[in-house]
Amino acid sequence: MSEREDHSSDVLPSSNQNEDKPSLAQKRNDLAALLPIFGVLFFATPLISTITNDNPSGIGGTAFYIFSIWALLILAAWFLARFMRGDETRKDEAE
């Protein structure tokens, strides 16, 4: 399947882009795909208990941990969305 995708991207190269643009966009997409994996890592693996169990303040500390990670994830998603949208509008303008 990856072979096919490579092929199709060969056939349909992105237009009106500088040399470094597609790779940058690709990196952003990869980052966007990574974000939920980070989320799962911090929320739904034993990582959450190792970090919070060391915290003596109990539920308050755990809540603080969860809300902080949550806020960071939202912030990251916001950044990515902004960049991706900016990228799209630039593309539209170029076209």
Binding site: N29, A32, A33, L35, P36, I37, G39, V40, F43, A44, I59, T62, A63, I66, W70, L73, I74, A76, A77
Partner: peptide, 19 residues
Amino acid sequence: LEFITIYLGPTLVFIGWWW
């Protein structure tokens, strides 16, 4: 804190919208 899981699941799906 169990209530928070109901919000974390959708959060993960949405920040992973690209998938």
